[in-house]
Write a protein that binds this DNA or RNA. Sequence first.
DNA 1: ATTTTAGATGAAAAAGATTCTCATTATCAT
DNA 2: ATGATAATGAGAATCTTTTTCATCTAAAAT
Lengths: 146, 146
Amino acid sequence: MADSQELRKAGLKATLPRIKVLEVLERSKLHHMGAEDVYKILLNAGEDIGLATVYRVLTQFEGARLVTRSNFEGGHSVYELNHGNHHDHILCVKCGKVDEFVDDVIEKRQRDIAAKAGYILTDHSLNIYGVCADCQSAAEQAQSIL
Amino acid sequence: MADSQELRKAGLKATLPRIKVLEVLERSKLHHMGAEDVYKILLNAGEDIGLATVYRVLTQFEGARLVTRSNFEGGHSVYELNHGNHHDHILCVKCGKVDEFVDDVIEKRQRDIAAKAGYILTDHSLNIYGVCADCQSAAEQAQSIL
DNA sequence: ATTTTAGATGAAAAAGATTCTCATTATCAT
DNA sequence: ATGATAATGAGAATCTTTTTCATCTAAAAT
């Protein structure tokens, strides 16, 4: 099956846990999932895969560039399939929803800043935190009830 | 003494642990310190202040806007005195050095992006990771030896 | 100056996320 | 099929941070 191929192409043995984790990442409607999320889905699906393995697999996937890891405030990280398109995140502090965005101007200025500071840029992370539209209207609802 | 005043002005009782933590933040040459760093300095200074208290105090300081907390990759956070000037961080993945920068263009685009996505912006964090000039030349040194 | 009282502290336990250990098992090349 | 190599599961370990709770202290009241 296709996932096995993809794993081997990435230089990883096509083991059951890896295939299953990859399936979860591909099939879930959530684009951003924590290790625990993946683990729970596998549990509910009746798979017998340990949490430690999920962590290991996700870390390997990251190394193999299959997924990208993002670290958010509060020591909470999520993984997402790497579709080649770099992007940053904007997330809701109420409901945890994660949206993506790209801004070429920001990207360029970051490179300039790194160069000016004498750094060889290896990575960057830009996260914007806020209250999403849904949670704003939910808050209004609550207001009107009180 | 001045620190007591500052604490009361911030709405916090001027207790010994708070004063000591504030002193450490003011006197250390490192501008960015983790809770553990502060704790160790206090230990070495012979102060009898628990790690839990350091965490509590730093969290309170953050709430009182005396310090700002930044979360870096790998679940590692640092605190720094809040001098009113917002800035982002660029840090060296080799030596851990942290530099600061501000870019008005980036700041503005972030606000625009949040607005366009329908979010009420509450916070943002931009961290650039790279290899600093010092570590680059250190790497060259190592090269020439081999 | 002494008492009062709300709030703060220290020590240890708990929690949460992630990594490590190691005996067992599965994968892939042969 | 089979063996060498690498991966897995379960639980222990680690690391950072938070919580609990009995004790203590800063600041207000007397």
